[in-house]
Design a protein around this nucleic acid. Structure first.
Lengths: 168, 168
DNA sequence: CGTAGAAGCTAGGACATCCAACTATCGGAT
DNA sequence: ATCCGATAGTTGGATGTCCTAGCTTCTACG
């Protein structure tokens, strides 16, 4: 763990000091916010992926699986998946390729539109989704390392940011 | 932009509803927080990278450059860079390889410890760092898409999360 | 109708990140 | 003084994301 040992100070607070020292006060908070976001995401992703690793799926694939899991018919067009998850179509292709290879979903043709491909969740996929979610809930989501108020505040602020960015 | 059109609703709020509907109330907020973090990071990163693209550097490389820019001697060991940025040693190797190829930094041997490699920022690197920072400050950091209070709250909550995770 | 533009999906390429494994060098314990 | 564990850095492999380009299929407009 040589690259991940604890530091004696907060590197982001230090960066903000440097920003201010260079006359960039107006941008210091924004820089700190963006940088914090990067680190926090990295931390959260690492925790989630470590729980999912035994199941042989990544968070990206887990998200696709849950989307299908929650859908009425258990299937969705590739494009809709990309829209919901806000990722590029090629990322969906990639994720579905691997989910399909793992026997968790299968591609089926759309009944009327021959351009679109439907992704159908399989029984094995449902089973994995349920188990992985139980694990994620227990090991990560129920103890995110923040107070309930902080979690709520975080979700609210990020929703504001996402909305402002046209995320929904 | 087919995969990035606006959605008629917040997909994360929808996911939280699903979580609650499946009896996972205790984990719903945590799930929403983690998922929000992923999306928000993606949005922020995209904005930053679009500003940095003309300079031929990515955010990862920009961070390395700024670390060196702020350092007293203009040089740091590879390991220290990894510690500050909380990334693997291999990621540092990768970033420094590209920065060096671009003529922005150069590797130099450590005077006493032959294991360690020092990364030294070059004049061209300093110049690019200064210009790119001006652009980032103007186009992203001074208008993060949130109120000043929200930005401060965000930084505070994320600092709590990072600290709890042993980030510093 | 028939064609041009839009939409859905995939292939190939560029990057970043992580992990496992390997080499070289240090340093402390015996 | 020597040896073994810890440290520094790189290489190779896997994954995910994006972008550009290209193919197929739909749809709307003249």
């Amino acid at each position: 763990m040589t690259a991940r040992d604890d530091l004696p100070f907060d590197p982001i607070a230090e960066a903000r000091r440097q920003w201010a020292a260079h006359g960039w006060e107006a941008a210091a908070d924004g820089m700190a916010a963006v940088t914090s976001l990067m680190r926090a995401q990295q931390i959260a992703l690492a925790r989630v992926e470590s729980v999912l690793r035994p199941y042989g799926v990544t968070f990206a694939r887990y998200e696709v699986l849950m989307l299908l899991y929650f859908s009425r018919t258990g299937s969705l067009p590739m494009t809709k998946i990309g829209n919901r998850l806000q990722v590029h179509a090629t990322s969906v292709t990639n994720a579905v390729d691997r989910l399909e290879a793992a026997g968790l979903v299968k591609r089926t043709p759309h009944p009327t539109d021959r351009r679109t491909t439907l992704v159908q969740i399989l029984d094995q996929g449902r089973e994995l989704a349920a188990k992985a979610t139980d694990d994620l809930n227990a090991q990560v989501f129920t103890k995110p390392g923040l107070s309930a108020e902080s979690v709520a505040a975080l979700v609210a602020v990020l929703a504001e940011l996402r909305h402002e960015a046209g995320d929904f």
